[in-house]
C-alpha cells in the first residue's frame, strides 16, 4: 500500500517507500528533496493530534460492510439511538461516507449546518446526548455531488477526526461507505494511535453480499482492526397480511452464521426485514422508540447490548482478538 500522491510522476515509488526520492522516476519531481530527506516517512503529525482529541472518547466503533445498501447507516443510527436511550451515556456518530452521506436523513437532520467554535467544529445534536457529524452538513443543497478523488476525501476525514469538538463522550460510532479503499484505510490509519474498540460488520443473508463481506473481514485482519462481530440484516420478511415468513435474500450458503464460523468471528444476531424500519429512516425517526415492541426492536436491543458488553470488557484488557463464538439464536 505505497502512498503514491495523485499528481506524482509515473512509476513514483510512493512517499513511504525505501526508494522515495532516490529512484529514477523521482528525478525532476518537485518533491524529490522532501522525499529523499525522509521527512515524508515520518508518521503523519495528525495521528498524534487525533490521538489527543480522542482521549475524551471512551469507545470507538467502526461500522463496516464490503457490500452497499445492506444497512450500515440504518444500523449506525439505531446503535447510537439505542445507547443514547440511557441518559447517562454520551454518544456521537461520525459519517465518513463522503460521496453518499445518509446519516443526516436517517437521523432527521436534513438541512442542518455545522457551526464553528474556538475548539473546533460543533456536531449537530439530535438529543442532548447524541451528536452527529457528516459531510451532508457541509453541502449547500441535497443535489450537490461530492465528486472527489481519494486524497481530498482523506483530507476531510482527517479534519473530521481531528477538528470536531465532541466533548466527553462514551461512544463514537463511525459509519463508512462500502468497500475497502481510501475512506477505510484513512479511518484506520488516523485512529491507529487512538485504540479503536473494533468493527461491527453488516451483511445481508445472500452469498452475493457475503462474498464482499468476507473481503471486509480480511481487510480487518490485514489492518489489525478487531472484529466485534457480524450482524445479519434483512433476514427474513414476515408478510403483514398472512404472517408467513419469506426469505427475500435467501441464505443459500448458510448466511452470516455459517460465514462467522468459517472465518472465526463472533456473530451478533439477525435483524428481520420490517418495512417500518425503512419508513422510520426516511422520516428520520428512531424505529426503536416508534415501534419498541416489535421483534426487530427486540433484536436490535440484544445486539446493541452485546456490543456494549464487548466494548466494556475489551476496554480494561489489552486489545487481544476475540474469536469466541457468541451464540444468539
Amino acid at each position: 500500500m505505497a502512498d503514491v500522491p495523485q499528481n506524482a510522476p509515473e512509476q513514483c515509488p510512493g512517499t513511504q517507500s525505501e526508494e522515495a526520492g532516490k529512484s529514477s522516476a523521482c528525478a525532476g519531481c518537485p518533491n524529490q528533496i522532501i522525499c529523499a530527506s525522509g521527512a515524508a516517512k515520518e508518521p503523519d503529525p495528525a495521528i498524534e493530534e487525533i490521538r489527543q482529541r480522542m482521549t475524551s472518547v471512551k469507545h470507538k466503533i467502526v461500522v463496516l460492510s464490503g457490500k452497499g445498501g445492506v444497512g450500515k447507516s440504518t444500523f449506525t443510527a439505531h446503535l447510537a439511538h439505542g445507547i443514547a436511550n440511557d441518559d447517562t451515556k454520551q454518544v456521537a456518530v461520525l459519517d465518513v461516507d463522503i460521496c453518499g452521506p445518509s446519516i443526516p436523513r436517517v437521523m432527521g437532520l436534513d438541512g442542518e449546518q455545522v457551526h464553528q467554535s474556538g475548539s473546533g467544529w460543533s456536531p449537530v445534536y439530535v438529543e442532548d446526548n447524541l451528536g452527529v457529524m457528516s459531510v451532508g452538513f457541509l453541502l449547500g443543497s441535497p443535489e450537490d455531488a461530492v465528486i472527489w478523488r481519494g486524497p481530498k476525501k482523506n483530507g476531510l476525514i482527517k479534519q473530521f477526526l481531528r477538528d470536531v469538538d465532541w466533548g466527553e463522550i462514551d461512544y463514537l460510532v463511525i459509519d463508512t461507505p462500502p468497500g475497502t479503499s481510501d475512506e477505510h484505510l484513512s479511518v484506520v490509519q488516523y485512529l491507529s494511535a487512538a485504540n479503536v474498540d473494533g468493527a461491527v460488520i453488516i451483511t445481508t443473508p445472500q452469498e452475493v453480499s457475503l462474498l464482499d463481506v468476507r473481503k471486509e473481514i480480511n481487510f480487518c485482519k490485514k489492518v489489525d482492526l478487531p472484529v466485534i462481530g457480524v450482524v445479519e440484516n434483512m433476514s427474513g420478511f414476515v408478510c403483514p397480511n398472512c404472517k408467513i415468513e419469506s426469505q427475500i435474500f435467501p441464505p443459500t450458503t448458510g448466511g452470516a452464521v455459517k460465514m462467522c464460523q468459517d472465518m472465526q468471528v463472533p456473530f451478533l444476531g439477525k435483524l428481520p426485514l420490517d418495512p417500518r424500519i425503512g419508513k422510520c429512516c426516511d422520516e428520520g425517526k428512531s424505529y426503536l422508540s416508534e415501534v419498541p415492541d416489535s421483534p426487530a426492536s427486540q433484536a436490535f436491543r440484544e445486539i446493541i447490548q452485546k456490543i456494549q458488553i464487548t466494548c466494556d470488557t475489551s476496554a480494561g484488557v489489552s486489545r487481544e482478538e476475540e474469536t469466541g463464538e457468541m451464540d444468539t439464536t
Partner: peptide, 14 residues
Amino acid sequence: SRDDAVVWRGPKKN
C-alpha cells in the same frame, strides 16, 4: 482467492 480483499487507494484503482 475469492475472499481476497483489494485494499487499494485511488491511484491504483485508476
